[in-house]
Design a protein around this nucleic acid. Structure first.
Lengths: 340, 340
DNA sequence: CTGAAAGCGCTTACAG
DNA sequence: CTGAAAGCGCTTACAG
């Protein structure tokens, strides 16, 4: 049977104080005599009183909820490879500070969903994932003066706060590693052109080439969708068109794994005949044959920091965007290249 | 700049009616004159009035939020292989009926988190995932008379509503298929013993054996944790201990894929030297070498139905537990077995 | 340091 | 069919 729900009024009466005092104690107001505080706390404890947050939210005009909305169509949710982990760590960190995550999907019309959530006061602000350059959601939320935080660093927009990892630097390191290995023709199977991470990774790729005096060749760049299948298909395409291949850099581990399968079907082995590098360092990357060299992002830290910044934004604390370093994790999927 | 927020009072005044009438119109109360209804709706439209749900929730004493709590430690979230998809489809369906999902993690003390959420009136009820036999959360929520829905069918508990897929039947079909292929010694790498799905799948395995007059051998059963690594490790173990192997049934695709790698390292190929069947039909299962024969569950339907039942529970509508059929998806990871 | 009272923005029994 | 008014359970300016 459900216990009786105590209201602040009940607790006040039992403690022999006003509701105002109970409220002050519960909210850590320092202007309460220690003796009073203890007395109230004792009753709160005894009756296991928990305040009703619906009432609190109404009065304080904030819900302490943060919205995370992902598109329902396709598997876009998963374009962000760490979505699971991000969501979990973000929610965990937010909870530590008494904020919580409301999760939903949008069906095509993103703006409507954002408006719906903010209009009804479901949430105080949003985290925006899986961003593209010139992202409409960012324009919309900026225009409406609704608090939000962007995961990623899209172009063609300004005045937004972001948390990002150093995609450019990660790609640079990967390609640099391949060049050092002696490779001269390095394919790059990137993500969709629209995604800002794709642009950033391409920039890293180009910078590495330039740094080592190599020419950029458009024909070596292909765009997949981060998924296994596109890695497989595009690698087949390359194999068919170019015949001999020495190195491929993939913008996701999933694509790299798909690519390794395509190679295998041609009797080629990553780490033996071809150099392969991925991006993300998903758990599976440790366990592929061969274990995959890849670029890792500190997803837990990103999620935690994102939560902290989001909450600071909601509390009017000044925030700064931040970029987390990426790291090349060297395993066994590359080989020394023949000299040019 | 943010638009002015209209309150029901503003709308009432503009429409020349009382707030009660506006409320009635907005909530579809039939006892409103059509003319009045239209007049109110026009103003609502014009000013894009959206009610404040914090106020509504306080007054109606329900939040229209549903809580989904997953343990933060380990990767338990992913023990349920479809968590991403489940969450997305569940949230989508709930949204269609004006319910929303609050997501959080728990750190060891589950009950505290559930109590926290219900005590503050964050949510009206919970969906419980990743259940074990005798699950403490179910006992707790039942005891507190808090509404909840279980995904899965744990034993040692009663009086709860569930949505489940036919794990027993799925395992039965898989093992039956292997037996028909001529296999007589069928290894089964199951999930953790504590999980109710593991028990169910083991029952299916046993029933198939019995049906075909085969002896059950305890030594052929191993327990992994549904993850890639455990499939790999346990398969190595079997290989070492038993030498020749003809068929392995895995309780998850991830474990099957790990297992195939272990086989490969011994020069054995699934679909050529050994029969392998997985469970779940994850997207990757289509793309492995060879494509994996596996048992699929209708996860989208499960999520949708779960949302419907959850909302019915919250609205006091009578509900019935439901079990969804599973289906054996035959691909190329099995071979005909030598006769016994 | 503490309390009485107003008010956050809704819904709904009650009365007409 | 409609409105005046109470009340959901908090927090906080105001006064002392």
């Amino acid at each position: 049977m459900r216990r009786k729900r105590w209201r602040i009024k009940d607790i006040a009466k039992k403690a022999g104080v006003s509701t105002a005092t109970v409220s002050r104690v519960l909210n850590g107001d320092p202007h309460v005599r220690e003796e009073t505080r203890l007395k109230v706390l004792k009753i709160v404890e005894e009756f296991k009183y928990v305040p009703n947050y619906m009432a609190r939210s109404l009065r304080m005009e904030r819900s302490s909820f943060i919205g995370i909305i992902i598109p329902r169509d396709s598997d876009s949710a998963l374009t962000f490879p760490y979505f699971n982990i991000f969501l979990r760590e973000f929610a965990h960190r937010a909870k530590e500070r008494n904020y919580h995550v409301v999760f939903t999907t949008s069906e095509g019309d993103d703006m409507k969903t954002y408006e719906y959530f903010i209009g009804r006061r479901f949430v105080d602000g949003f985290v925006i994932l899986d961003v593209v350059d010139g992202d409409e959601r960012i324009k919309f939320l900026s225009g409406m003066d609704i608090p939000f935080l962007v995961i990623g660093r899209p172009q063609g927009l300004d005045g937004y706060t972001y948390v990002d990892s150093d995609n450019e630097g990660g790609a640079y390191e990967a390609v640099r590693f391949l060049i050092k290995l002696g490779h001269r023709r390095i394919f790059f199977i990137n993500g969709p052109k629209t995604h800002s991470v794709s642009r950033q990774r391409l920039e890293g790729y180009k910078r590495a080439l330039k740094n080592f005096g190599m020419e950029f060749e458009e024909s070596l760049i292909l765009n997949g969708d981060f998924k296994y299948d596109s890695g497989y298909t595009l690698t087949k395409e390359i194999l068919k068109k170019f015949g001999k291949i020495e190195a491929i850099f993939y913008a996701s581990d999933e694509m790299a794994i798909g690519g390794m399968k395509a190679l295998e079907e041609k009797g080629l082995k990553a780490g033996k005949d071809v150099s392969v590098i991925g991006f993300d360092d998903i758990p599976l990357a440790r366990s592929t044959t061969p274990p995959l060299t890849t670029v890792s992002q500190p997803i837990n830290e990103i999620a935690k920091k994102a939560a902290d910044i989001m909450m600071d934004i909601l509390n009017g604390i000044e925030v700064h965007s931040i970029v987390f370093p990426t790291k090349l994790v060297v395993r066994n999927s590359t080989i020394a290249g023949g000299s040019a």
